[in-house]
């Protein structure tokens, strides 16, 4: 449900419109639903609207969490391997 993609804001009009870029694709979208967005921010784009800012910090935290789960499981495997 709800196809939405993170894209980088590359320019903002006087009004509520902005241009976002995604790998060389540029699309005009509306900023009517978000506040405090600046050029360089990543926003989640859905049906031509920015829905939310994307937090870089949180994205990295989530990836770190995923890696940690992996590290844990590697340790577990090692222990289990040693027991076997």
């Amino acid at each position: 449900m709800c196809l939405a993609l993170p894209a980088r804001v590359i320019s903002i009009d006087d009004g509520e419109m902005a241009v976002v870029a995604l790998e060389g694709i540029k699309k005009r979208i509306s900023l009517a639903l978000v506040e405090d967005v600046s050029v360089g921010d990543y926003v989640l784009v859905h049906v031509g609207y920015a829905l939310h800012k994307v937090s870089e910090e949180e994205a990295e935290r989530t990836l770190a969490l995923m890696s940690k789960a992996g590290v844990l499981s590697a340790e577990i495997e090692e222990i289990e391997g040693a027991e076997a």
């Binding site: 894209a7 995604l22 790998e23 060389g24 694709i25 699309k27």
Partner: peptide, 12 residues
């Protein structure tokens, strides 16, 4: 191409 992939993501 990365931009073709991106356009496809954008349009589903």
């Amino acid at each position: 191409r990365p931009d073709v992939a991106a356009a496809c993501e954008l349009l589903g």
